[in-house]
């Protein structure tokens, strides 16, 4: 029902940062993250008239759009770059001026490790730490809540191992 929906601007202001962080944890550059985040909200804006809160929460709805947009990005641009990064094991390159501020973030290196995880593990971690429940993560990833938990914990252990390996 229209009356149940918050104004789109509220959704935009509330979720822009979380959606950006979710995308940023998966793609190579801040510029890519901005482009995908922009696409997410453009798509959401166009589709908002059809969004019904009784079917899903605003968070789950937006993260579904974000997940699809990120997948599309990888299909279009990402495969060769990801393979190259995996082989070289280098931190992602940041060439754009807009990313300079992000360089200062304390946890950027950790997100680089997240980006290197297998796709479904990476996705479960990014969705969970973007504030979604395991039930919502499961729905988005087309699996049960328990399977989502399992994926997440496997991802967490893989992440720990990745961080340890680099420290050695």
């Amino acid at each position: 029902m229209l009356a149940d929906r918050p104004p789109f601007e509220n959704l935009y202001r509330d979720y822009l940062g979380r959606i950006y962080a979710y995308v940023r944890a998966q793609v190579a550059t801040a510029a890519d993250a901005e482009d995908i985040t922009a696409q997410v909200f453009m798509n959401a804006y166009q589709a908002y008239g059809r969004f019904e809160t009784r079917n899903t929460s605003p968070a789950a709805w937006l993260f579904r759009i974000a997940r699809n947009a990120t997948t599309d990005h990888f299909r279009a641009h990402g495969r060769r770059e990801r393979l190259r990064r995996t082989i070289e094991r280098q931190p992602v390159a940041e060439a754009d001026p807009g990313s300079m501020a992000e360089e200062r973030l304390q946890y950027k290196a950790l997100l680089v490790h997240v980006a290197r995880l297998p796709e479904r593990q990476r996705d479960s971690i990014a969705l969970r730490h973007s504030g979604l429940s395991f039930e919502e993560v499961g729905v988005l990833m087309s699996c049960t809540e328990d399977a989502a938990k399992m994926l997440y914990h496997r991802g967490l252990k893989a992440l720990r191992d990745s961080v340890h390996q680099e420290g050695e």
């Binding site: 950006y20 944890a25 807009g98 973030l105 304390q106 950027k108 990014a126 992440l159």
Partner: peptide, 23 residues
């Protein structure tokens, strides 16, 4: 590690102007 991830996701935000530009 979970705590670090929480912090990482909560502190990763777009540059200051991005929100108004996109809007």
């Amino acid at each position: 590690l979970q705590r670090q991830l929480d912090d990482a996701f909560q502190t990763t935000r777009p540059r200051a102007d991005f929100e108004e530009e996109l809007w």
